[in-house]
Amino acid sequence: MDIQMNSIEVKDLTKQFGSFTAVDKVSFTVKQGEIFGFLGANGAGKSTTIRMLIGILEPTSGDALVGGYSIMKQPDKVKTQIGYMSQKFSLYNDLTVEENIRFFAGVYGLTGKKYEERKKWVLKVANLEGKEKLLTNSLPGGIKQRLALGTAVIHEPKIVFLDEPTSGVDPVSRRNFWDLINDLSAGGTTVLVTTHYLDEAEFCNDIILINAGRLIAQGNAKALKTNYIKNTILEIESDRVVDSMGILEKEDWVGETSIFGNSIHIILNDNAKGEADVRDILTTKNSINVHRVDKIVPTLEDVFIHLLEKDKTNVS
């Protein structure tokens, strides 16, 4: 048996809908047991990519190995390796908790002792012990989400795909849900998760960012922050945030600007510039009171806004 260190290997995967290219020659690899974050705006091609990897959509060209099997040549084998949970809640609302577990266990061919054992596990992770007879419809959102994940991995797949699993779930439930993802990963399961919550991306071992169907960045959170933004980022707090941004934008040495609450982040085109220059323009020339100017480590959001802006200019 060969040692399969890569759980997923995607090569030049492309999907066209008519003349529209939803996914354009995307390649990446996911290592076994890692949490792999898949980021991008709505409509960037995240779901389309996942749907090709799990065998719901047929790629136009390219291929991928999932758990060692080709999605083009051995789609049936792929299905035995994976679990999937979509952004839509994918259990039967009109069945009870136990009936849902039993049905999906049946579909995966779990019987006898193994079934009992896995049922217990699912009930435990969803915090539903003793509540097997409840109708799924009556469960709160966060619990439903955990039950859905539990049943999606009831057959202990090597790889699990989560397509925006936490959309519409409150922060506490989101946190609990991520604990569950970490547990799965610790147990050796590879997790590929799409999200647009950037704080969630920080939990991922590896991240890729796609925009308009193309892969524009990859690496872990730390690498992304250091590799993709070499320029200095300043955080500025002033009296008139919007005006300040308008004024700074006009300067040559200021790159992208963005507002974060009551402060502005600016990326410098010229690293020689700094706090003195900002104060000079805002306070001296425009008499805006500046409270503070700090050099900061970029957040993932800075990185992504920077990359997306850069990509936009590249495309046009």
Partner: peptide
């Protein structure tokens, strides 16, 4: 409509 068909397609059924 409710998305369970997609879930079923992903299983080896």
């Amino acid at each position: 409509e409710i998305g369970t068909l997609e879930q079923l397609i992903v299983t080896p059924i």
